[in-house]
Design a protein around this nucleic acid. Structure first.
Lengths: 346, 346
DNA sequence: TTGTACGCGTTATCAC
DNA sequence: GTGATAACGCGTACAA
């Protein structure tokens, strides 16, 4: 038997494997990790056996320092507890596994200050890519953040921002505007003529795009958007604003569009609590197609937003060495009509 | 002025900073990264200035190799797209930021084979902790996985499993059983006497615990659990099984408990589609308290499960050097009664 | 094809 | 207090 050289503590190192197999460090490295160089079959077997026996797994940190580049993609999101971001992360992680990358995740809690701090921290990982899934407000990108991002880019990190990016930046967008436009058009076609929109805070890109798209589609179809209210993008905000709307008086047959399903869910509850019937009395539509859409009221009409696909693509964009925006085909958003917006006669 | 030694490409290194500040590597290291050693104020200032000027950020990989230990916690979940796991991740990430750790995430897709592969991969990171948020089936832990875990533990990685762990393992559980028991008791108190349970696949710990807890609490309160049906833990499964139940005939005043809110949401829709009225005709209760609970039917009675707290605690358990199970106080699960289970007279 | 030796960026142990 | 210098675990010219 071979001598006792079991790694007293800690994991087996490449050195251990080489010794156990009776080969040089270099040879062991070549067989265990991808190298173009060839190594004799007999050696290969011995090394593999030794690695297996010792339970060797390459130390990724050491590999990263040696190679000068890591197999890490950092994901920064506004709120990982949010369903949509969860699905986004799901797509990112799926892509990462395929591509052999590791995903690190951080959460800004929608706080720009924290975002900046986190991006700084992330730089330490020397990630190959950074996916910025943060709710962006128009023109709110601080210079400091931009500096960080260009610094990141300078060290070879592919920064991909979700939504519209600056020119020259890798970016990929969900298609909020187009999806909402299709929704507006469809609802106009269904016979709705009066709509009210409950959106997120003014300036929030995703919200603004959805509002703009919906209004365009609905107007083109012959409808009129009577009002746009701004609030938080939450269920409670939807509920609260809807109650205000009801207090102000809301004509029967009016359609309320909430910029997200969560908002729409709040709206539906507000209507119900006020004794109005969703769908027959007042119509409601949302955006996202969260899992419980079918179970809200008579079923919530919405737009299916493929956040997982978005995440998957973002990862590809973060990982590929060359990437061109133009090659991207738009994601497929699908209008899903349910009971909350039945066809209107008339 | 100092010479031109701008790092041609890539990030500034500690070496660069030291040279720019005109001090030694060691000194630069001491001021920039935590060291107990003191360094003169004048030097400290110069180093800080140089670091700032060069935009220095420590290379974490290099730090990890040098220190022999990383500041990484790996999170392995069954499905990050699931709301509950999203909230879990949220808590983990929050704790990690506090503790100065980085979180890497991977997704098993509920596939044991993939789980094993991923744990192997994760070993490469030499993480300080590993959080296993995977849906566990009783007795399904393969020997191979156990081996991996002990290997991990041997290299100093704190493995913390969510749910009931093996003795000697760090584990922390949500309290499914207790929560469900409280729910059962509360519903019995509200006057319900007949219940049917729609659970997940047989053997799934979380599901079994909830079923067992509910039955115990309900029975103790004077109720009877007429039947337990097993299926997937999904909305569609809830819907399908509920339809079967209806086809078989369901007495008015019966209560249906779905082991998760998603299942319960499906149940509620099945009832509605069959012309039954949730709450007045048949009662429904769930578990988790997902965001749209209030907007499903007349509001879904459920148990608020603090997944984010669970995640936060899991991170603490993964990070702390010594940790004892006994010190953990149970998480606070709260029964939330809503319209889907009004008080029954009689 | 195989092995030697140096470098990656950082920490830590020593002398000074 | 400060600065050389040897690790850390691994990749990879380069030489053999």
């Amino acid at each position: 038997m071979s001598e006792t050289h079991a790694p007293a503590r800690g994991a087996a190192t490449l050195h251990d494997v080489a010794r156990e197999a009776g080969v040089s460090l270099a040879t062991a490295s070549r067989v265990l990790n991808g190298s173009t160089r060839k190594v004799a079959e007999s050696y290969r077997e011995r090394v593999d056996a030794a690695a297996e026996k010792l339970g060797y797994t390459a130390n990724l940190s050491a590999q990263a320092t040696a190679r000068g580049t890591s197999a890490i993609v950092a994901l920064l999101v506004a709120d990982i507890g949010d369903v949509s971001f969860g699905r986004l992360a799901s797509g990112v992680v799926r892509g990462a596994e395929e591509a052999g990358f590791i995903v690190t995740i951080a959460d800004t809690g929608r706080d720009p200050e924290r975002e900046l701090r986190l991006v700084r921290t992330l730089r330490g990982q020397r990630p190959r890519g950074l996916i910025l899934g943060v709710a962006r407000k128009a023109g709110s990108d601080s210079a400091a953040l931009q500096n960080e991002l260009t610094a990141l880019a300078a060290m070879g990190c592919h920064v991909v921002v979700l939504g519209e990016g600056e020119p020259g930046q890798r970016s990929i967008s969900l298609g909020n505007r187009g999806g909402a436009e299709a929704l507006g058009a469809e609802l106009a076609e269904l016979g709705y003529r009066q709509a009210v929109v409950i959106g997120g805070p003014e300036g929030l890109r995703a919200s603004d795009d959805r509002i703009g798209g919906f209004t365009a589609g609905f107007t083109d179809g012959g409808g009129t958007t009577a009002a746009v209210r701004h609030g938080a993008t939450t269920r409670d905000a939807g509920y609260a604003v809807a109650r205000e709307l009801l207090a102000d008086g809301l004509a029967e047959g009016t359609l309320i569009f909430g910029v997200s399903d969560l908002v729409a869910a709040g709206i539906a509850s507000a209507l119900r609590d006020a004794g109005r019937q969703v769908g027959v009395d007042i119509a409601v539509a949302g955006f996202d197609d969260i899992p419980t859409c079918r179970d809200i009221g008579p079923g919530l009409t919405t737009v299916r937003a493929p956040f997982d696909d978005l995440g998957y693509r973002a990862l590809r964009a973060a990982v590929e060495s060359d990437w061109q925006h133009d090659a991207e085909v738009p994601l497929a958003l699908e209008v899903v009509v349910r009971g909350s917006t039945p066809r209107r006669d008339g």
